[in-house]
Amino acid sequence: MRHWLLWAPLLVFAGIVALVAMEMHQPSDRTVFSHMVGRDLPRFDLAPLLDDKPGINAALYRRGKPRLVNIFASWCVPCAAEAPQLADLAARGVPIDAVAVRDTPGDVRTFLNRWGDPYARLGSDPKGRVQLALGSSGVPETFVIDGQGKIVEQHVGPIREEDIPGILKALEDAR
């Protein structure tokens, strides 16, 4: 066997280690991000699901004030886990709108009664079309929309306590 060939396994291994080390030190959410971040909201209009809450549409997000869009479902357990953090954000005066994916009025009512209701508006997305149009791959996900209808940030998965400062900052920057 040639001499230099003996060092090949070590080189391959060093490459793997470098790759993994690089991956580990990136401040990365290892999640599927929407290609829509940085772009304008697609046109959509979601009908209300509950009698006492208006639905949502794209025009709502061009009124100059940033808002959050929270994609959730009553059948989703992590969505219940992020409820306290959403309540916290709502208490700080952040307007939060909900896209209820594949849901029924009764189930959503039960969910909100049980876990609290942080939402200003709530639109029904019975087939998940708007969810897909936003580039969301699951529930829960939360989008920060600036006042001009542009998606400026996406949070994938439940919002944890430590995520709140980042979301507040994104809202502040979008102002």
Binding site: V20, E23, M24, R30, T31, V32, P78, S137, G138, V156
Partner: peptide, 10 residues
């Protein structure tokens, strides 16, 4: 163990 490869919502 390091969770580098478990993708969505890890």
């Amino acid at each position: 163990r390091s969770g580098i490869l478990t993708s969505v919502h890890s």
